[in-house]
């Protein structure tokens, strides 16, 4: 299922069937909105209309490495260790 791959979810076959059916139902139920708003209605992405919020360009110390290294699933040489990037085996 393409969506599962896009969302990085390794779904079982029965999950795929189950979700496909439920997503169909949910989308069907919210179909009603598809032709409510006219073209000239602007979309709202932010509920409160505030603009131009910035911080000054001042560097400050961040976290101590020990504070987050302990929570890393794998750690080596002061860096996060992650599995190989490419799909073909080494």
């Amino acid at each position: 299922m393409h969506l599962g791959r896009l969302a990085r979810l390794e779904l079982t076959e029965s999950e795929v069937d189950h979700y496909t059916e439920q997503l169909g139902q949910i989308l069907g139920a919210i179909e009603a909105i598809s032709d409510v708003a006219a073209d000239d209605i602007p979309p709202t992405s932010h509920p409160i209309p505030v603009v131009n919020v910035y911080r000054e360009d001042v560097a400050l110390p961040g976290l101590d490495r020990e504070d987050f290294a302990v929570g890393a699933p794998a750690w080596e040489d002061d860096r996060f260790l992650v599995p190989r990037i490419l799909d073909e085996p080494a």
Binding site: L9, E10, F68, V82, P83
Partner: peptide
Amino acid sequence: FDGMRFGIRVGDDGQHSVEQVMSATRE
């Protein structure tokens, strides 16, 4: 929540790729 920087990681046996491990972890 992909199992790379914090939280649990599933399926990292040294054989699987980062995409496979992320997907297994999230699943």
